[in-house]
Nucleic acid binder design. Structure first.
Length: 104
DNA sequence: GCCTTGACCGCAA
DNA sequence: CTTGCGGCCAAGG
């Protein structure tokens, strides 16, 4: 699968994540049949179109992925909290309860 | 084309 | 629980 097609499928999938639920990078890649391309999913999020709910994608460790742009991290947390997602004192969220997968 | 970087991940220690 | 390492692979210099 070529990169461009992959990104479009990532965006299409992320658009289907319900409010208040999340998926993690590697999971998205695996669902699309491309295990090992978690980093490419990260790239797809960084370049996501305006209508893609990129904030519903977090790391497999249940934290908002660290990145140079601290402001976008804060923005992601605000958006998730606005959807009812709880964070503990260490900035972690209950991935086990919030994880979503297509066809659920 | 080579090398480095990065919104990653699973597993070993 | 935490960290480190290796594997991963696309982009950009």
């Amino acid at each position: 699968m070529n990169p461009e097609c992959f990104y479009r499928q990532v965006w299409a999938l992320v658009r289907r994540i319900p409010r208040g639920r999340v998926m993690f990078y590697g999971q998205i890649a695996a669902v699309l049949g491309c295990p090992g391309r978690a980093r490419a999913v990260g790239f797809a999020m960084r370049h996501a179109p305006h209508d893609v709910p990129w904030h519903r994608v977090v790391s497999a460790r249940g934290i908002i992925s660290p990145r140079p742009d601290r402001e976008s991290m804060a923005e992601q947390r605000r958006r998730l909290e606005a959807e009812g997602v709880p964070f503990d004192a260490e900035g972690r969220l209950p991935l086990r309860d919030l994880l979503w997968e297509p066809g659920e």
